[in-house]
Write a protein that binds this DNA or RNA. Structure first.
Length: 286
DNA sequence: CACGTCACCTGCGTGC
DNA sequence: TGCACGCAGGTGACGT
């Protein structure tokens, strides 16, 4: 899916902060059309549609990879998973037939001819309408970009884990927001092998990893995220990957061919030279 | 606790 | 051109 930077980009677009895009903030939801019922995680579709009607969008934010919309009395959550997207459109002029996109799953009809559209080719994405958003967000780990997360604290979090870095960093209850791309890119930047056992990092390595994660995420946000495959959202971070999707191509730092292995069912890309120097990684098969 | 496997879905690129 | 296959930004439910 979109990872933290792509979700952040979408949130900023929805707030109207980029270009001349319009925003759902301050608009009342007049009606909702659910085109794929399983996109609605909770409550049951009839209750969802009925309860949301008449509520006004007050605030749009992000928590991990979730889009959080504060409404008058409930909170609307979106998780885009692999292929979801969320954007606003204007109603067509009178007389024209409303075009429903091939992958539109939920359409929210707002005031002033605005429509909020949740589209999702692979149908993995989910939408929640909750009284207390913590019911869904409660198990998330800390925000990697939050200043409150110190290098010391991050080192302590790692010290308690005997797991490999790659699956650990992608575990949303450990840290909220990293996915497959940004994890591979951050590990490359930190010069750490993806199979390194977390508890074996020293304080300096932990600090370097947190710094690399933050720099990678910030660059992603600054480039408006990555647009890969047919899911295009305007970002261009995909043109600046060091390892992701570059199997067999040469490392931009040292020239060694980038390797791809599978870890936890996910393609994992790394430079065996730049990221091969941790003590325990040498013992691991590659 | 930590890992492996499958399931959920559609679409695109590749190779025969 | 058709078609099988592998791959894809994610997560949750299992089993060992």
């Amino acid at each position: 899916m979109p990872e933290l930077p792509e979700v952040e980009t979408i949130v900023r677009l929805l707030r109207g902060g980029i270009g001349d895009s319009s925003t759902p903030i301050g608009k009342k939801i007049l009606r909702t059309s659910v085109l794929w019922e399983r996109s609605i995680a909770a409550p049951p579709v009839p209750e969802f549609v009925q309860r949301i009607q008449g509520q006004t969008v007050q605030k749009i934010s992000r928590r991990g990879k979730y889009i959080v919309m504060r409404l008058s009395s409930d909170t609307l959550l979106f998780h885009l998973r692999m292929s979801g997207d969320l954007h606003v459109e204007f109603e067509k002029l009178h007389g024209e037939k409303e075009a429903i996109g091939k992958h539109d799953r939920v359409i929210f009809i707002l005031q002033n001819g605005l429509r909020l559209i949740f589209e999702d080719a692979r149908k993995f994405g989910r939408v929640w309408l909750l009284t207390d958003p913590q019911d869904e967000l409660g198990d998330l780990g800390p925000e990697p970009l939050a200043e409150e997360l110190s290098a010391d604290q991050f080192h302590r979090m790692l010290k308690d884990c005997r797991r490999q870095l790659k699956p650990l960093l992608m575990d949303q209850s450990f840290l909220a927001g990293l996915g497959n791309i940004y994890t591979d890119e951050a590990l490359f930047k930190a010069k750490l092998h993806p199979l390194t056992i977390a508890s074996e990092l020293n304080a300096d390595q932990a600090a370097a990893l947190l710094k690399a994660i933050r720099e990678t995420l910030l660059e992603g946000i600054q480039r408006n995220g990555a647009s890969i495959d047919w899911v295009y959202r305007g970002g261009d971070f995909q043109n600046h990957f060091f390892v992701y999707g570059r199997k067999g191509e040469t490392c931009l730092i040292c020239g060694t061919p980038i390797e791809r292995i599978v870890v936890g069912q996910r393609g994992t890309h790394f430079c065996p030279n730049c990221q091969g120097h941790t003590a325990n990684a040498k013992k691991l098969p590659t």
